[in-house]
Design a protein around this nucleic acid. Sequence first.
DNA 1: TAGATTGTTAATCGATTAACAATC
DNA 2: TAGATTGTTAATCGATTAACAATC
Lengths: 228, 228
Amino acid sequence: MSDLAYRSETGAAAATDGNGAGTPERLSLGVAARLSRYLQVLTQARKMGKETISSQELSDYTHVNSTQIRRDLSGFGKFGKRGVGYNVDSLVAQIRKILRTAGQHNIGLFGAGHLGTAIASSEIFADHGFRIVAVFDADADKVGAQVGNLTVRHTAELSGVVEEEDIVVAVLAVPNAAAQSLADELVDAGVKIIFNYSEALIQVPPEVTVHTSSPAVDLLYALYFYLT
Amino acid sequence: MSDLAYRSETGAAAATDGNGAGTPERLSLGVAARLSRYLQVLTQARKMGKETISSQELSDYTHVNSTQIRRDLSGFGKFGKRGVGYNVDSLVAQIRKILRTAGQHNIGLFGAGHLGTAIASSEIFADHGFRIVAVFDADADKVGAQVGNLTVRHTAELSGVVEEEDIVVAVLAVPNAAAQSLADELVDAGVKIIFNYSEALIQVPPEVTVHTSSPAVDLLYALYFYLT
DNA sequence: TAGATTGTTAATCGATTAACAATC
DNA sequence: TAGATTGTTAATCGATTAACAATC
C-alpha cells in the first residue's frame, strides 16, 4: 500500500500508487522543507564533484535521520541503488521535479549596503534557479552604482520594475525602520514572497509570505544543546 | 497530570509537577527551537514598545499555531493573563531562563568582507547576548582595518585569541574554498559551535555543531507553497 | 457585564526510529 | 561472494488542531 503520509489534505483519498504521480497532491510542510534541504546539500556535493551520496552522508549534512531521508525519497520513486547510494545528478533532478521549482524565478534585492552587496555577489540564490534581476536603494547617492553586475535603481521605481521584470520574490537587506513601509509597497506591487534580512517584524496580508532570517535563533538553539 | 511531552529522554520518569522545575530535563529539539523563535519575536516586539502580546500575535509572526504556543509555554508555568495575553518583558525573562541562555556568549567572526562587515554592524546577535569579540581575515591587507568597533586580526592568530577571549561560537563569512580548513583549525582551537554562512559543506567531529545558513532552502520552500 | 484570551483536554496526524529483508 | 546501503515495515513518540471552560 502506498504511504499517504506524504499527501496532505486528502485524508483517505485514493492515491493511484506509491511510486508514480497520480494526482500530484501538495506536499506536507515537513516533507517540502526537508526536500529543499536535501537539494541544497546535493547541489553543493555536485559542485565538489561527488557522483553518488548515501542517505547517511545526507543525514550528516542535514541533521535529518537517514531512515527519514530514505522514506522521504522512496515516497516518490526508487531513486537509489542498494549498496551504492543515490546518484547526485539524478536526485537533484528528481527533487526539483517534485518541488516543481525547476524553472527560473526572479528576485528583486532591496538595499545596496554591505549586506545587499554580499547577497548580490553570492551564488546561494543562483544555484537554485533564483536570479537577482534588480537592485534597489532608497539612498540617491547609491543609485547608479554597480552591485554585482547590476546597476542600483531608486526604490521609487519599484512598482514598474516589479511588473516589467516579473519579480515574485523580494529580498530585504534594508534598515529595520524601512522594512514595514517597503513591504507595504511590495505587496501593492504584487510581490508574493518577502525574504526579510532585517530584524523588523513585518505584517502582510495572508496571500503574501514573509520569511524573516534569524541567525540568532539558530544560534540560541545550538547553544542550548551545547550548554546542557 | 503534568505533560511529559516536554521532557525528553525520561520516558515515564516522574517529573515533580507541570509548573515547577524539579529536575530540569533537557528540552526536546522542537520545543527548544520554537522557544528560540518566540524569544526573537518578543525581543523585537519589546523594542517596538509593545507591552503585552497574545499567542495569536506570536503565531502570526512565527507561523507556529497559537495553541501550540500556549501549550509550549504552559508546560513551564502560567505566564499569561486570560483576556490580555503575555507580558513581553516577563516572557522574555522566562524563556531565557528556560533556555538557560541568559548569559553573555562570545563570538569570533571570520571574514571581513561585505558579509562580515554587515554582520559586525548588525544587532541581531547582540540582542540575544552574543557579543562579537574578534574579527579575523586571512587577507593581510585587511588586517588592522576597523570593522564595527573591532580591529581586524589575521586568521593565524586564531588559536590564541579563541582561548584568551573564551570564544565558543565561530561565525564563518569566508569564501567556500576556505571554509573547511578554517573549520578544522577552529575545532582544534576548541570552538564548539560553527555558524557557516558560506555554501561549503563542512565536516566536523561529533562534539562540534555546524549550522549552515541556507536562505535558498527557505526560499525554495516558500516558493513551493506559492506555486502550488 | 461582555469580550477576549489563556490553559487544558482529547483526538488525530505526521515524524522518528530500529530492524531487517532485498539487492546492488 | 561479501559488504554496503536501499526500501519498507511496525511500533512509538511528539506535533497539531479543535474545542471550550476558566478567568482576566
